[in-house]
Design a protein around this nucleic acid. Structure first.
Lengths: 138, 138
DNA sequence: TCGTCGAATTAGACGGAGTCCAATTCCCAT
DNA sequence: ATGGGAATTGGACTCCGTCTAATTCGACGA
């Protein structure tokens, strides 16, 4: 992560750099995710964006999150069968999931080494590897 | 995995061993999972169990799968945001997920070594570690 | 064998996450 | 200014899974 401070302006540039037309709603959604640098679910994003006045519809929130995913502006974290989390950190990393609270924490992939994996099925290429460590209070 | 051949009788014993009263429906659901030794979603289980005549309700399928989970007869695999898979293999292992087809394959955990993981948050204990390798055709 | 009683099952209503669609609004290029 | 394609919208809709209240099952004792 290079840029530590996100403004609506540099987020607009970031979206353009990924081939996305920046609109008010898209910028606000990006700002919700990147300024907090947290893992948020769709309805959390929705709630943050509409905190003051209702500004963005549910359809737009989902459209936008899926667009961001497709253009690799954010990542998806699947740990809870009931909802997806969206992750503004796109550098290689894994997750610790606190089962009771639902809290997610990042683990930098640079520090982790995995060995002994079998060869992939024929004609297949790796799209990515997810590691989730599920923890609970002792 | 010791037993390679599952009968309704030895599955009934298996359920008893896990503290579960074996009933017709529960045995059929266990049989669907263990005889195929595949990763199935709840509706796949439902379809298999009701292939001939409708015998088991949706509520019972979900009740039973959750009961099996709780008693650790099976495991849950969360790779697809739209549905959960149930895994009759409870020995330590990881997964390869073919994104396009949705197919899941096991990787024996005995062969895999992971190093460089950070310490857990204070007062937390590991409940389990999931590794999913997402692949697609080249 | 029969009756009893708690456990298991059931149908169907319900809930919540996410998608779809047709209508409107926005905003850029001219 | 304005025309048109893209973006947004509300609301209906789908789908997975849960809940509930009523019924059925089946083990056990008489």
């Amino acid at each position: 992560m290079e840029a530590t401070h996100y403004t609506r302006d540099n987020l607009a540039d970031k979206l353009r750099a990924h081939g996305i037309t920046p609109t008010h709603q898209r910028i606000e959604i990006a700002y919700a995710l990147f300024s907090r640098c947290e893992h948020l679910s769709a309805d959390q994003v929705m709630a943050i964006v509409n905190e003051r006045h209702s500004e963005t519809s549910k359809a737009t929130v989902y459209n936008t999150l899926n667009l961001f995913l497709e253009k690799k502006v954010i990542r998806e974290v699947i740990v809870d069968p009931s909802k997806v989390f969206y992750d503004p950190n796109t550098s290689p990393h894994y997750h610790i999931y606190e089962i009771e609270s639902g809290r997610l924490t990042d683990i930098d992939a640079a520090d982790v080494r995995v060995s002994g994996l079998p060869p992939l099925p024929d004609g297949m290429v790796t799209e990515g590897m997810d590691i989730v460590i599920r923890v609970r209070s002792a």
